[in-house]
């Protein structure tokens, strides 16, 4: 069996796709631009909705990749895509019988929403910063022994035409609820306010987590989008929003403002879309051939997709698409 299959990106979707192909007897090659496999999960601490540590998901996948002898090319970025070949940043071209694009998403750059003061005020951080702080065991400016007030703002870089992000990133609602619970557990004296426009708990166990945040942890939910943040003289953050349920403006001072950054389209999507048959949707994610029946296929016979390269998804959905894409590839190369 000497068919070549190239997988672009070694996040959970790419890893699962490689594993499924290898289990069917194909020897795929993963091309990963960073120096390790795992994608974004390397930066997450505990996962919603179960608080499983991210390494518990990643390690078994990595072990399978090793056991099955999947070829992995790290620190290699695909810069050009053809129906039967890819070109890397160093100029090498690799040919393949089929290609699976698993290049994932980018975290939204919160500096674009200047009104929230990210990278301007010290106590405005993003959900990604917070995951890193959880990994390190403490959160900046918060003290376990004294009460603190924390605001978590949903939909930063999602559902926002001003920054060309018309889509809902889906996972940030539940990630915001998860982080509120983690903050409350780490700082039991703190009061946490989640500012939201809608709470979208789409996955299994997510709604239950939301209710747990309300009932067990008394996390406060305020329906309103923060319009601006300003730093006070003592380095706290004053935020303004409308409490839409009451129909009046609301202001409050907090010790920390956490911005739930959404999922933006992958940086490589534009260059991939120069290939005929690869099309982008309005937010820049790659459109699959058919969102109902062909969600891992493209209009090019030899090119397939898996994971968040086509839309915001959670881990389970990304992994499932890895399996689905492997199946489609196997059929295409007439395994």
């Amino acid at each position: 069996m000497n068919k070549e299959v190239i997988i672009i990106g070694g996040g959970v979707a790419g890893m699962q796709c490689a594993i499924s192909l290898a289990e069917m007897g194909v020897k795929p090659t993963i091309i990963e631009k960073s120096d390790k496999l795992g994608g974004k999960l390397n930066d997450w601490y505990k996962l919603f909705p179960t608080f499983t540590s991210a390494s518990e998901v990643l390690n078994p996948l990595k072990d399978m990749i090793n056991e099955l002898g999947v070829d992995v090319k790290l620190s290699s970025e695909v810069t050009k895509l053809e129906p039967k070949s890819v070109t890397l940043a160093d100029g090498t071209t690799m040919s393949a019988d089929a290609i699976v694009i698993c290049s994932g998403f980018e975290v939204f750059d919160a500096r674009l929403k200047e009104e929230y003061g990210y990278k301007i005020y010290d106590n405005v951080i993003t959900s990604v910063d917070l995951e890193r702080m959880f990994c390190e065991g403490s959160v900046q400016n918060l003290d376990k022994n004294s009460p603190s007030r924390i605001a978590i703002l949903h939909c930063v870089g999602s559902r926002d035409e001003k920054v060309c992000q018309t889509h809902c990133s889906r996972v940030c609602c539940v990630a915001g609820v998860k982080q509120a619970i983690e903050l409350k557990e780490l700082y039991p004296k703190s009061e946490i306010f989640n500012f939201y426009m809608d709470i979208r708990m789409f996955g299994c166990g997510y709604e239950e987590l939301y209710k747990e945040a309300q009932i067990k942890h008394n996390i406060h939910f305020v329906r309103g989008r923060i319009s601006e943040a300003a730093q006070t003289i003592d380095s706290k953050i004053q935020i303004k929003s409308e409490d839409t349920l009451i129909g009046r403006p609301l202001k409050m001072t907090v010790d920390l403002l956490v911005l739930m950054v959404g999922m933006s389209a992958g940086k490589s999507n534009n260059s991939f879309a120069t290939t005929d048959g690869i099309n982008l949707n309005t937010s820049g994610f790659i459109s699959p051939k058919n969102i109902f029946t062909e969600c891992v296929s493209s209009d090019v016979d030899s090119i397939f997709y898996a994971g968040t390269v086509t839309a915001p998804k959670n881990i389970g959905e990304s992994i499932t698409e890895g399996v689905a894409a492997a199946h489609k590839v196997a059929k295409f190369i007439k395994l």
Binding site: I246, R248, L250, T253
Partner: peptide, 8 residues
């Protein structure tokens, strides 16, 4: 009077 809900 200011209309805001003054949470402080």
């Amino acid at each position: 009077r200011a209309r805001d809900i003054d949470m402080d």
